[in-house]
Design a protein around this nucleic acid. Sequence first.
RNA 1: GCUGGUGUAGCUCAGUCGGCAGAGCGCGUCCUUGGUAAGGACGAGGUCUCGGGUUCAAAUCCCGACACCAGCUCCA
Length: 667
Amino acid sequence: MPTVRLPDGSAMEVAAGASVASVAQQIGSRLAQAAVAARLNGQLVDLSTVVAGDGPHDLEILTDKSDDALRILRHSTAHVMAAAVRRVYGNHVKFGIGPAIEDGFYYDFDLPERIADEDLPRIEAEMQKIILAAAPFVREEVPAQEAARLMQSSGQDYKVELLRDIAAGSLAPGEQLSQAEAKPVPGPSGAVTLYRTADFVDLCRGPHLPHAGRIPALKLLNVAGSYWRGDSSRPMLQRIYGTAFFTKKALDAHLARLQEARRRDHRRIGKDLDLFSFHDEGPGFAFMHPAGMVVLNEILEFWRAVHLDAGYVEVRTPTILSRELWLRSGHWDNYREAMYFTQIDEASYAVKPMNCPGGLLIYLNKPRSYRNLPLRMAELGLVHRHEKSGVLHGLLRVRQFTQDDAHIFCLPEQLQDEVLGVINLVDRIYGTFGFQDVRVELSTRPEHSIGTDEMWEHATRALRGALEARGLAYKVNEGEGAFYAPKIDYHVRDCLGRSWQCGTIQVDLAMPERFNLTYAGADNQEHRPAMIHRAILGSIERFLGILIEHYGGDFPLWLAPVQAAVLPVSDRFNAYAASAAAGLRQAGLRAELDDSSDKVSAKIRRATLRKIPYMLVVGEKEVAARSVSVRDKAAGDLGAEPLDAFIRRAAQEVREKRLRPKAAAAL
RNA sequence: GCUGGUGUAGCUCAGUCGGCAGAGCGCGUCCUUGGUAAGGACGAGGUCUCGGGUUCAAAUCCCGACACCAGCUCCA
């Protein structure tokens, strides 16, 4: 009799030929009810899987509490969607792949008709029929040849291609098909598995729900194009995105989060708050308005202060430099399609896409001594990159932006300490903006790169050593480094759980070589310095966009374009209100007076919509007491307070760069 | 760059079958002088993205360009 070992360590005997489902039943009917799939000897399997052989077998019944179960639910929902699409559009639909992804699933289809967003309800309705019918997921193991014949005869060219690659063993993990659920693997006997749901058969490794009736809550979200296997030279398929959850409540919470993300879209808020704009006359080039400049300048003032404190000096290098310089740096070889070129007096020049060559020229401008290293040279450098038209996205992807760059020239043995110094600076800066959840990735040497193996090893070791010295968890991205250096990338997660790449630290031994940088050592010999490229905010413009979404437009006081609005109750109090506003401004606060002829309630509404943190209502009582009646945008009416006291309190809040209480709804 | 969608007042959007260009908000003027999210009246504001075509007649139909949106590819 087979024996299974459960996660709690207990063992039990099960009947020969028993399915996982019946084992679950044997453990308890509640568990059997809740069971979605199982992990048998480390493999995810269907509930219908038979526990074969005496074992002991490690068995874990997965219920809707587990993340694996959620992925299985979504993957199964993708199959149901495919079945529904086939019913709605007919048998000529060709199927690509349909995996579960981070927040849901998708399926790619090839069909002559256009699927529009308006068609999604029809598809969803068809899915509900399949769910109502509790259509089972039937697993079949067949020889690859037979599967190929089946797919061929039904015109499923993409599936045939997948089968061919499986047979050839060339379907490597990490390909665009990286979602494990989507990737069928040949069994030990060269067999592949098929899953049937309703009248849809898919090549699929599984596992799946026992039947479609186990899908409690789903939503189709949008349609978009997508290359077959992520290859831009292959056909473009139509992809439908959707999501599914085990409870209606969880689905609703997720949809609310999507809604909240739309509400916080920095493009929307940027327009509403008059922070910046874009124009046809310069696609991808942001126009910063006065209110946006206030935020930007506050960020930069803070940035300069902490850099000064961390031992940096600041430089500025030209935007246009000779083409020859970029040939020397290797940028021309590796990056010219994305660079802008121009001509000055017959000679060829490039608009800088990076600041480093300029920094190198400053280093080379005079002899350097080990006594003056490390040299930490910061530059708020304006760079231009020709991003392809389809990738532009508000402030988050632009063609011109300001990097908060720095180049640290140091002795090779100082590298790790310098990297640690940058890591500390990153912590300090991100913490100030309220980014708590920061993830770190280490990218190693890519295929196209300059420099020697030894350089790359040394450089990568310095980065890894610093990460390990700090005890930071990090993910490694093999071959994802820059052409001249391995790098640490920082990803910050905002309050909606979305991740943004901001900071980067790159240890570069190749550029100093190319540009023949030297310093005089204590031995009076020439030596080669090491170089660190780093940015913390990344692009200032992009960081502003991220901040807008993170705060939902409700900036902390120190960043708010207008910090306080003085709202007289009637124009009889305009004179006092004006003097109060002047007092605030004298104390360095950004204050405005609303002397329109509206009622206070209308003034409050307007100030609230403009997301002004403090509203100061003044009327007869306040004039008499030299006070203001404070309304905090987040906390509401706080009552009267002497004007001086408010000024002191607000100035203190600005000095401390205090974060505002989260005003977010729906979180 | 690719696939699909969208482009009308400062903003959000309506505009039927091809027949005089619309609303709300905002803006301006006047009235109103009020206590914590919208007081009232009047008014101004348009190259219907741009270029071509069809038509007696185009915001509307056709072709092309551009920009934006969703996604894919890319992001030193």
